[in-house]
Simulated scan of single mutants.
Amino acid sequence: MQSGDEPAAAVLEADALCLRFGAVEALKSVSLRVAPRQIHAVIGPNGAGKSSLLNCLSGFYRPQSGAVRFCGQDISALVPHKRAALGISRTFQGIQTYPSMTARQNILTGYDARMRTGLFSALLYWGRVRAEEEAFAAKAERIIEFLELEELRHALVGDMAYGMRKRVDLGRALALDPKILIMDEPMAGMSAEEKGDLARYILDIRDGLGIPVVLVEHDMEVVMDISDRITVIDFGQVIACGTPAEIRADERVIAAYLGGGSA
Rank of each mutant, 00 (worst) to 15 (best):
Q38K: 14
A188V: 13
A14W: 00
C241S: 09
G127Q: 08
E194D: 15
K50F: 01
A23S: 14
G94E: 11
R172C: 10
K82D: 06
I95G: 08
A48H: 03
A23R: 15
I182C: 07
A137I: 09
V24A: 15
A255D: 05
R83E: 03
R128A: 08
N106V: 09
V214H: 06
F136C: 13
A9G: 02
A113K: 15
M190H: 07
L86K: 11
V214A: 08
R252T: 05
N46V: 03
I143R: 14
V168G: 10
G163C: 07
A26D: 03
L53P: 06
A263Y: 05
D5W: 04
I144H: 12
P80W: 02
L86N: 09
L124Y: 03
G259L: 01
L147A: 15
L12K: 10
A240T: 01
P7L: 04
D112Q: 09
I39E: 07
Q2N: 04
Q2G: 00
C18F: 05
S89E: 06
A8H: 07
G110R: 02
T117E: 14
L53E: 04
G260K: 03
A137P: 07
Y201I: 13
K166L: 13
G4Q: 08
R116M: 08
L119H: 05
V253C: 01
K139Y: 10
A255W: 00
A245S: 14
A199S: 14
A41F: 06
F60R: 01
A9C: 04
P36Q: 12
Q105V: 10
E251N: 02
N46K: 03
A122P: 05
G110P: 11
T102F: 03
R37T: 14
T243C: 11
I182D: 09
M187Q: 04
E221A: 13
A256K: 00
Q73R: 14
G47C: 11
R62L: 01
S51P: 00
R153S: 14
I230S: 10
I239T: 01
Y111D: 04
G87D: 15
V232N: 01
R248D: 13
D228M: 15
I95Q: 06
E25T: 14
A135L: 11
M115K: 14
Y201Q: 14
E148V: 14
L152H: 10
A48M: 02
V238N: 05
Q105L: 03
V157S: 10
A245W: 04
D225H: 11
G261M: 01
M187W: 04
L174K: 04
K179F: 09
G189C: 05
G158L: 11
F21C: 08
V232Y: 00
G87L: 14
E185H: 08
C18W: 03
D197Y: 12
R248H: 06
F146N: 13
A199N: 08
A48N: 02
R33Q: 12
E217C: 10
Y162M: 07
